[in-house]
């Protein structure tokens, strides 16, 4: 597991300050998308080897949701950015 996350608001912080939500690449289906689409959205996840984008919450810091792009094999961190669209942050 990657151990130092460069939070765009707080600087480098240890992973203990964060909560991981999971894959940042999946999109929520429409309410009438059907049972299969919803089953996949709620339960089915890939277990990739290599580059992976995830939502991380800086729970014990700025409490912002971040998108962390990391390597599941080497634990390298490629990029960390705020999950909100640019300009939406107060």
């Amino acid at each position: 597991m990657a151990s130092l996350i460069a939070c765009p608001h707080c600087g480098p912080r240890p992973k203990e300050e964060f909560t991981i939500r999971g894959d940042a690449g999946i999109t929520r289906p429409t309410p009438d998308a059907g049972e299969d689409a919803w089953y996949a959205y709620v339960y089915l996840r890939d277990n990739p080897r290599g580059r992976h984008k995830e939502h991380w919450h800086h729970t014990s810091g700025c409490r912002r949701w971040l998108v962390v792009e990391r390597d599941t094999m080497t634990h390298a961190i490629y990029a960390v950015s705020d999950a909100s669209a640019p300009g939406e942050t107060a």
Binding site: C62, T89, A90
Partner: peptide, 9 residues
């Protein structure tokens, strides 16, 4: 007196 700890907070 003012302590910024997060964007907009």
């Amino acid at each position: 007196a003012v302590r910024a700890y997060s964007p907009g907070q």
